[in-house]
Amino acid sequence: MLLDARKNARLTQAELAKRIGADKGYISRIERGLTIPTVSTLYRIAAAMGLTVELRPM
């Protein structure tokens, strides 16, 4: 999901990482499902790609 959004935003892992103040490896681990970002990091990632986060009941 993050991988697709990042590619749609035409960003490399390094570019996205720089925008949120993280390292490329962290973005890679999120994309591979090895780590889950905090809520605040998720919001920073979304903002860096020009997206918003919407919370809805399941």
Results as ranks from 00 to 15, higher is better:
residue 34 L to K: 14
residue 51 L to P: 01
residue 54 E to W: 03
residue 23 D to G: 11
residue 14 A to K: 15
residue 25 G to E: 13
residue 47 A to M: 04
residue 39 V to I: 11
residue 12 T to R: 13
residue 58 M to H: 12
residue 47 A to P: 00
residue 34 L to R: 10
residue 21 G to V: 02
residue 8 N to K: 14
residue 28 S to A: 03
residue 19 R to K: 15
residue 30 I to W: 14
residue 29 R to M: 11
residue 7 K to Y: 09
residue 31 E to F: 08
residue 13 Q to G: 14
residue 33 G to N: 09
residue 53 V to I: 09
residue 40 S to G: 01
residue 25 G to P: 06
residue 39 V to F: 04
residue 17 A to R: 02
residue 31 E to Y: 13
residue 20 I to H: 04
residue 3 L to N: 04
residue 52 T to F: 10
residue 52 T to G: 11
residue 23 D to T: 08
residue 14 A to T: 15
residue 42 L to I: 08
residue 3 L to C: 08
residue 18 K to A: 14
residue 1 M to Y: 01
residue 6 R to M: 12
residue 42 L to K: 00
residue 35 T to P: 02
residue 17 A to Q: 01
residue 8 N to D: 04
residue 52 T to D: 13
residue 14 A to L: 15
residue 49 M to T: 00
residue 22 A to R: 14
residue 30 I to R: 03
residue 54 E to S: 13
residue 49 M to V: 05
residue 57 P to M: 09
residue 42 L to A: 14
residue 5 A to Y: 03
residue 32 R to Y: 10
residue 26 Y to K: 11
residue 14 A to Q: 15
residue 56 R to A: 06
residue 48 A to Q: 09
residue 12 T to F: 07
residue 22 A to M: 13
residue 22 A to E: 04
residue 56 R to D: 07
residue 20 I to E: 07
residue 37 P to Q: 06
residue 58 M to I: 04
residue 7 K to V: 13
residue 57 P to V: 12
residue 9 A to M: 12
residue 54 E to T: 09
residue 46 A to Q: 06
residue 54 E to Y: 14
residue 38 T to F: 01
residue 25 G to I: 09
residue 51 L to A: 10
residue 29 R to G: 00
residue 22 A to P: 01
residue 52 T to S: 06
residue 49 M to D: 03
